[in-house]
């Protein structure tokens, strides 16, 4: 199978490999996939408690080159974003960026799942973030109504 140059680049030089302290209140951890399926991704985020901006993202992945590249790319993209914006990243964005072939689309789905799982884990530790997100949705709705 031919890999795109971007997949090869992430495979050869994966970004943000590592581990954050999962017991920290500011760290969210997502562990998705299964060993028997041949893909396991662990994505971790360290979120600023004030701004809800993802200050640091780390990953480790057991999987094929496309799975490694998808998770490496995901950490690059979510770093510096606030959690709500990070949730807007979809697997199709990853497919496009890495030019993944159809048989590798599940790798991008897994990366999206990993982002969501990490953010959900962080949110569980921060109930106030739910309220803030709900509030921002209300504000957004108001804006839409006025417009």
């Amino acid at each position: 199978m031919a890999y795109s140059n971007k997949v090869l680049d992430h495979y050869t030089n994966p970004r943000n490999v590592g581990t954050l302290d999962k017991s920290s209140v500011d760290v969210g951890t997502g562990l998705v996939g299964a060993p028997e399926c041949g893909d396991v991704m662990r994505l971790q985020i360290k979120v600023n408690p004030e701004t809800h901006v993802i200050e640091e993202a780390k990953f480790k992945t057991f999987g094929c080159g496309s799975a490694i590249a998808s998770s490496s790319l995901a950490t690059e993209w979510i770093q510096g974003k606030n959690v709500e914006d990070a949730l807007k990243i979809s697997n199709t964005d990853i497919v496009k960026e890495l030019s993944l072939p159809p048989v590798k689309i599940h790798c991008s789905v897994l990366a999206e799942d990993a982002i969501r799982a990490a953010i959900n884990d962080w949110k569980k530790k921060h109930p106030e973030a739910h309220a803030a997100a709900a509030q921002s949705e209300v504000n957004q709705a108001e804006v839409n109504t006025t417009a």
Binding site: P14, T19, A34, P35, E36, V40, K60, T61, L110
Partner: peptide, 26 residues
């Protein structure tokens, strides 16, 4: 293996068979 979450977990003494993996859909 530096990249593998499974290898790290095994090194920490975690029994991978005890983990509730999400197997559906992949």
């Amino acid at each position: 293996r530096e990249l593998s979450p499974l290898y790290e977990m095994v090194k920490e003494g975690i029994d991978l068979s005890k983990i509730q993996w999400q197997t559906e859909g992949h």
